[in-house]
């Protein structure tokens, strides 16, 4: 029952995707080109975000912690 519900929902979602992107009126071979291009683009986006975002976050954190940490240290030095 639940599986059928999910299947219906997925097919409805795919139909909406077809309508909005106009794949609905494309011929099958054009549809496959369009889907391939779109999937490739999305896959590349996900892959590149997986590869680069952690590094960027790491660098950013290093940078900000460097600023904050440095101030803290110098404050401590002044206090002592």
């Amino acid at each position: 029952m639940d599986v059928k519900h999910i299947k219906d929902y997925l097919s409805w979602l795919y139909y909406q995707y077809l309508l909005i992107t106009c794949s609905y009126v494309l011929e099958p071979w054009e549809q496959s080109i369009f889907n391939t291009v779109l999937l490739t683009a999305i896959a590349m986006m996900i892959y590149s975000s997986y590869v680069f975002i952690p590094i960027h976050i790491q660098l950013a954190m290093d940078f900000f912690s460097g600023i904050v940490g440095g101030q803290h240290e110098s404050t401590v030095a002044l206090m002592s």
């Binding site: 909005i20 992107t21 106009c22 009126v25 054009e30 369009f34």
Partner: peptide
């Protein structure tokens, strides 16, 4: 926005 996007896709395939 979605309408213009749809026409854009159709136009690209038209050129193809």
């Amino acid at each position: 926005v979605l309408t213009y996007m749809g026409y854009g896709i159709l136009t690209l395939f038209g050129y193809l």
